[in-house]
């Protein structure tokens, strides 16, 4: 079985044969004991392709039990890894990429014509011959959703403690440093001289963290559509936590903080553009805090000002607009507070909107996740398995 005969690639059929007794070893080597960083220099989602090539061989020899057993062990193995690494972004992202890739493979090689339109002739030859795995596709889709939810939970847990200080408290515009509303100057300056406690994250640190998440997901070959959905969900979290704090804290409702917040949101938008994520709908989730920042900056005196505010603040509800106007704190003795009659004017204008009464944003709101079908251009017969993976018990067929 260990005799290796040099064969040309065209002789391979893109399948991997294994002995039934080796199934547990396969799952242990490729899933439960697997370290994602051992395959950084190979084809993205290598474990998914290897598993699929094993499934193909079991299908080819018409062994339904072997197919079912491998798929069940694979799914249970992935669940086990996720449970053990439930706070690890890299491992969770890796298995999201691989389960969704395995799901795509089960579709691409199912023999269903809807999934074959982009296949090469060779890929069509590699379609499953004997079994319809539609029910297992459903299980893998459910599993992928579970992994996605875990990934969001892990990422949110990392960025949540950074959001308030990065978006509302750190001073990323140098010229604005020290310009704070009356009576709040000390709070910020004492934080700066602390030398950075656990709560003093800068905007740069938050963006760097988002960059790390993005880099990991991209390098692991997670579908760009899924990456976009993760980023959108994290941007929703940034928006919700920032806005909720703004709505409860008088000290951040000032003209200069509006300027700071507008700058910070523009940096976030810039990050999306720089990473080709602007189409991901993530930018739209920032609209409420962009409008809140503008609301802090615009004039709030005349009836025309009231009209302008109402047409500007479409992503904030009446309660939120009124609350920000009430909290607005003048920067110095030359600036006036927002008058009661101005706020009434706004309320009258917004009456017809019938906005919901909730003041705070639901930070836990989750957008429904979708895994659009993404076939691969890879030819299975060309797949190279590095010897370092310790899978020499698999026989290329």
């Amino acid at each position: 079985r260990q005799v290796t005969v040099q064969r040309k690639e065209k002789d391979f059929e893109g399948m991997l044969e294994y002995y039934k007794d080796d199934e547990a070893l396969l799952v242990k080597t490729l899933i439960t004991d697997f370290k994602p960083n051992t395959v950084t220099a190979t084809v993205p989602c290598l474990p998914a392709y290897i598993l699929f090539m094993c499934i193909r061989h079991a299908d080819y020899i018409n062994d339904d039990q072997k197919v079912e057993s491998l798929l069940t062990s694979t799914i249970n193995g992935i669940k086990k890894v996720l449970k053990k690494n439930n706070d690890d972004f890299e491992v969770t992202s890796f298995w999201l990429a691989n389960s969704s890739r395995l799901l795509h493979c089960l579709k691409q090689y199912s023999g269903d014509e809807v999934f074959m339109t982009q296949n090469t002739a060779k890929q069509n030859e590699h379609c499953l011959k004997n079994f319809d795995l539609a029910e297992y596709r459903q299980v893998l889709s459910d599993l992928s959703i579970q992994i996605y939810q875990q990934l969001i939970k892990v990422a949110e847990g990392i960025i949540q403690p950074m959001i308030v200080s990065a978006m509302l408290e750190s001073e990323s515009i140098p010229s604005l440093a020290g310009v704070k509303p009356m009576g709040y100057r000390n709070r910020s300056s004492s934080m700066d001289t602390d030398g950075g406690g656990p709560s003093s994250y800068t905007l740069e640190a938050l963006i760097r963290q988002l960059g790390q998440f993005h880099g990991i997901m991209r390098d692991q070959g997670l579908d760009p559509e899924i990456v976009g959905q993760v980023v959108r969900q994290l941007f929703h979290c940034v928006n919700a936590v920032t806005l909720n704090n703004l709505l409860l804290r008088k000290d951040v409702c000032s003209w200069s903080n509006g300027m700071q917040l507008r700058y910070n949101t523009s940096q976030m938008e810039e990050w999306l553009r720089g990473n080709n994520l602007y189409q991901s709908k993530a930018a739209a989730t920032l609209e409420p805090i962009i409008q809140a920042a503008q609301l802090l900056q615009v004039k709030k005196k005349t009836s025309q000002d009231a009209e302008a505010i109402c047409s500007l603040c479409t992503a904030l509800n009446t309660q939120q607009i009124v609350k920000i106007l009430n909290l607005y704190t003048p920067l110095n003795e030359f600036e006036e507070r927002v008058t009661v009659s101005f706020i009434r004017n706004i309320q009258n204008r917004l009456q017809e909107r019938n906005d919901p009464p909730q003041l705070l944003v639901d930070t836990k709101h989750t957008f429904p996740v979708l895994f659009p079908y993404t076939p691969s251009a890879l030819s299975l017969e060309t797949l190279h398995i590095p010897a370092s993976l310790g899978l020499d018990f698999l026989i290329r067929v």
Partner: peptide, 30 residues
Amino acid sequence: RLPSRPRILLKAPTLAEMEEMNISEEEESP
């Protein structure tokens, strides 16, 4: 291309059922 012959549908348990089976298997093993 020749039309392929119909494939046999392999019935799969749900994700939750798979987990239950897995747990009971682990309990049985020493």
